[in-house]
Computed example of a mutant assay.
Amino acid sequence: MSLRILQDCTNIDWELVKETLKRVNMGYFDAETHKKAFENSYTVIFIFDEDKLVGFGRALSDGAYQAALYDIAVIPEYQGQGIGSMIVEGLLERIPSCNVILYAAVGKEKFYQKLNFRRLKTGMGLFKNSLLMQSKGFTE
């Protein structure tokens, strides 16, 4: 494995980003929406094995004290090899003074707990499709 880290949106195949999110059972939109989301983020990270995109993530932040991680995904055949941790740690390095929140894909909570994330007792969400989010286990 020859991993390469990219911390900008140069030459990204946004259709592949969409397909990756779909493959790992995360929320996804059309390629152009993902392009806009990543380009408007505070920081991004893409991990390649040679020229193959194997994982990515992004953070929204005020750059002072609050941030949120989104769209952290690693293609299934590369999971369990430390790439997810590289993504999270790479994002956190760019927001060192911030409190960080995220909502994990159902079943991935233990991965984030290993990286020192803890469950929120007062977390709340307002979703465009609240019934879908409830059926997927994100809300009560």
Rank of each mutant, 00 (worst) to 15 (best):
V54A: 04
T20S: 13
K121M: 09
G137A: 06
D62N: 15
Y42L: 09
V44I: 02
Y65R: 01
K52Q: 14
L3H: 06
G57M: 00
I45Q: 09
F127Q: 08
S61E: 08
F38T: 07
G27Q: 11
D71E: 05
T139K: 06
I83Q: 02
K121G: 14
D13K: 07
G80P: 10
L69K: 00
K128S: 13
K128C: 08
T43S: 15
C9F: 06
K22R: 13
L69D: 01
G125D: 07
E39D: 11
M133L: 08
F48L: 10
S41M: 06
R4Q: 15
G137R: 11
S61I: 11
K18R: 15
E19R: 13
L115T: 07
K52Y: 07
Y70N: 01
R94Q: 15
A68M: 13
G55N: 02
Y70C: 05
P96E: 14
F117R: 04
L6D: 08
A37M: 13
Y112N: 05
T20V: 05
T139W: 07
E140P: 15
S85P: 02
L92S: 03
L102E: 11
R4V: 14
G55V: 04
A67R: 00
V100C: 14
L69E: 00
T43Q: 13
R119F: 10
K110T: 09
A104C: 09
M1V: 04
F138A: 06
V44Q: 12
F46Y: 11
E89M: 09
V24E: 07
G125P: 05
N116T: 09
L92Y: 04
Y42D: 08
V106Y: 03
K35W: 12
A59F: 01
L131N: 15
F138K: 12
I45C: 02
I75C: 04
Q79I: 03
G82Y: 07
F29P: 00
P96K: 13
M124R: 12
Q7D: 11
G57P: 00
M86I: 14
S61R: 04
I72K: 00
A68I: 12
E93A: 13
Y28P: 07
V74A: 02
E32C: 07
F38R: 07
F46N: 09
S135F: 01
V88E: 04
Y65W: 10
C98V: 12
Y65H: 03
A68Q: 06
K110L: 09
L132E: 11
L53R: 07
G123S: 09
L120V: 04
I75D: 00
M1C: 07
G57A: 01
T10V: 08
R58I: 00
L102C: 08
N11I: 05
F127T: 09
N11R: 14
V106F: 02
I87A: 01
T20K: 03
D71H: 01
L60W: 02
I45H: 05
D8I: 10
L126I: 15
A68T: 14
F138Y: 15
K35S: 12
I47E: 02
G27Y: 15
Q134L: 01
R119V: 10
G57C: 00
R118E: 15
